[in-house]
C-alpha cells in the first residue's frame, strides 16, 4: 500500500474550527454541559473514548454543543512494529461517531515488538526514516479516509544519526505524506532551549499551508533544561514565539493544553483569551 497511494487526501469535510479552543478534560464535563461557556471548539483525547459507556456518552453530549477535534497518542507512527489495526479500527469507529474537524497524533514511536511504553519517543531524522514514516502516514490516512495532523514533540534526546534538522524533516514529511501539521509552539521553544537552536529557523522552514492547528502549553524549568509537563500557564518566551507564528501562518486555530494539575475552567478560559489577544483585529 502506501507508496502506490497517489490520490490526494482531502481534509475532513466538517465541521470547521476557528479561534482559540481548550483541551477537553473530564473534570470540566459538568461545567461545559451546564453553563455552555463561550468556547469556539474543544479538543478531545481520542485514547479516552475508545470504549463505550459514559465517556463516549459525555463526548456525544458535548459534541452536540461544540465542534471537536480528536488528538491521540497511540498510533506509534514511527515504530518499526506493524500499524496496530485494532487501535486504528477503534479510532475510525470513534471518528465516524464524533465527526471531528480533524484527527491528530504525534511524530513519534511508542512500541517495540508489541510492548508499549505509552510515551512519545523521538525518531532519528534521516532520509530513510522520513520515507518510512511518510509511507505509514499514507497508510493511516488511506484507512481513515482523511488527512491527519502530525504534531512535533519535545525530544529530550537527539540521535547522532540525524542528517536533517527537525524542521527540515517535518517540512519534507508533511508534503511527502500529504498530511497536515499540528505545530506545538511550546515544544518548538522547549527544543530550542534544550538543544540550542534558533526557534525562528524552525518556524521559517515550515510550509504555512500545512499548519492547521497550534498547541500552546506551559513547560517546567528543571534547572538547566525545560520539561514539557503541560501543567503550567504558557510562559513569556512561548507567547512571543506564538506571535511570530501567527504572523507567518495567519490565524490558525489554537489550543490551550493542560494535562497535569488541571485548573478550573475559568483559568483555561483566561489563557484562551490571552491567546486571542495575539490575533490580528478585524
Amino acid at each position: 500500500m502506501g507508496t502506490v497511494v497517489t490520490s490526494k487526501m482531502a481534509p475532513r469535510p466538517s465541521p470547521r474550527i476557528q479561534g482559540v479552543g481548550i483541551g477537553l478534560r473530564s473534570q470540566h464535563y459538568a461545567h461545559l454541559l451546564t453553563h455552555q461557556p463561550d468556547v469556539p471548539w474543544l479538543e478531545a483525547l481520542s485514547d479516552n473514548y475508545l470504549g463505550g459507556g459514559l465517556p463516549i456518552h459525555h463526548l456525544e453530549q458535548i459534541r452536540a454543543i461544540y465542534p471537536l477535534t480528536l488528538h491521540g497518542v497511540g498510533l506509534s507512527l514511527g515504530s518499526v512494529d506493524p500499524i496496530n489495526r485494532d487501535y486504528l479500527n477503534r479510532l475510525k469507529t470513534l471518528a465516524d461517531r464524533i465527526e471531528p474537524a480533524h484527527i491528530s497524533d504525534h511524530l513519534c514511536w511508542s512500541s517495540v515488538q508489541g510492548d508499549y511504553f505509552n510515551d512519545l519517543a523521538p525518531l532519528p531524522y534521516t532520509e530513510a526514516v522520513l520515507d518510512y514514516v511518510a509511507d505509514r502516514i499514507l497508510q493511516v490516512q488511506e484507512f481513515l479516509g482523511c488527512r491527519i495532523l502530525i504534531e512535533n514533540l519535545s525530544p529530550y534526546l537527539q540521535f547522532r544519526h540525524n542528517s536533517l534538522t527537525e524542521w527540515d524533516f517535518i517540512a519534507t514529511l508533511v508534503n511527502k505524506a500529504d498530511c497536515d501539521l499540528l505545530l506545538d509552539i511550546n515544544n518548538v521553544y522547549v527544543n530550542a532551549v534544550n538543544h540550542g537552536f534558533d526557534p525562528l529557523d524552525y518556524l521559517h522552514a515550515i510550509p504555512p499551508e500545512r499548519v492547521k492547528e497550534i498547541h500552546l502549553a506551559g513547560y517546567e524549568d528543571q534547572g538547566g533544561f525545560l520539561f514539557d509537563t503541560h501543567g503550567y500557564p504558557v510562559q513569556a518566551g512561548v507567547w512571543q514565539l506564538y506571535q511570530v507564528a501567527l504572523e507567518q501562518f495567519g490565524p490558525v486555530p489554537t489550543l490551550i493544553e493542560w494535562d497535569t494539575d488541571i485548573p478550573t475552567f475559568e483559568v483555561l478560559m483566561a489563557e484562551a483569551k490571552k491567546a486571542s489577544g495575539y490575533w490580528p483585529r478585524d
Binding site: S79, V80, L157
Partner: peptide, 24 residues
C-alpha cells in the same frame, strides 16, 4: 508496505531497553 530501515529497528530496541525498566 514499506520495510523499516534496519538502523531504526536497532535504535528502537536499544532505546526501549534503556528507557523501560521491565524490558528485561
Amino acid at each position: 508496505m514499506a520495510t523499516p530501515p534496519s538502523e531504526l529497528r536497532e535504535l528502537q530496541n536499544l532505546f526501549y531497553q534503556a528507557i523501560v525498566p521491565h524490558a528485561q
